[in-house]
Nucleic acid binder design. Sequence first.
DNA 1: GAGGAGATCGTCT
DNA 2: GACGATCTCCTCT
Length: 209
Amino acid sequence: MYSPRSLMLLPVTFFDRDPRKVARALLGKVLVRKTGKTMLAGRIVETEAYLDGDPAAHSYGGRTKRNDVLFGPPGRSYVYFIYGNHFCLNVSCLPDGVPGGVLFRAVEPLAGIEEMARARGVVLQGAGDLRTDLQRLTSGPGRMAEAFGITRERDNDKDFTDPQSDLFIADDGYRVRKAVSTVRIGITKAAEMPFRYVIAENAFVSKLR
DNA sequence: GAGGAGATCGTCT
DNA sequence: GACGATCTCCTCT
């Protein structure tokens, strides 16, 4: 069972900088969702950066009702619906007025695993397939959003740096040994830019390349 | 185990 | 009216 000695909330300044730096720095941090009596927690193992002036970013076409959070203050949650099926979770970066964000692509489940499995409609198998099941639980933007019960209606524009928030990001002291950057996934514009960050040799990244 | 197509709907043109 | 920062299932090898 996951029992961290201490969870240090990340400050707003952590997010008030280049999304590439934020994306890299977020690796190894812990995404936490507090529900009624249980706590869902996952170690961030895969992120993608979306920059100001980035053709692949949702903010590229200008500020709209949908992408408004990306243009707002740093450290807020940006949730969008995609392909008629999935929600994806981001955090806004850069100062108020400047668009930028980081997409959470995968986490390693730490706490509330049964809750996550329920949210995903998955039945965890016995010892034999447990490892495989865990990997499928949160490895991918749509999967982890579903596991954490993220919806746009409920979770868009929440403050990740507010201790009162039921959705926040913390540092539990874990240190990443090796991080790698690769090209981003699932996009067509500016697809060649190496703004995807993963923890090297971690089994919970969404796709090995 | 790799590859392809369908699902399904909010958002912007 | 087109398309998308994805996932799952099905088929073929």
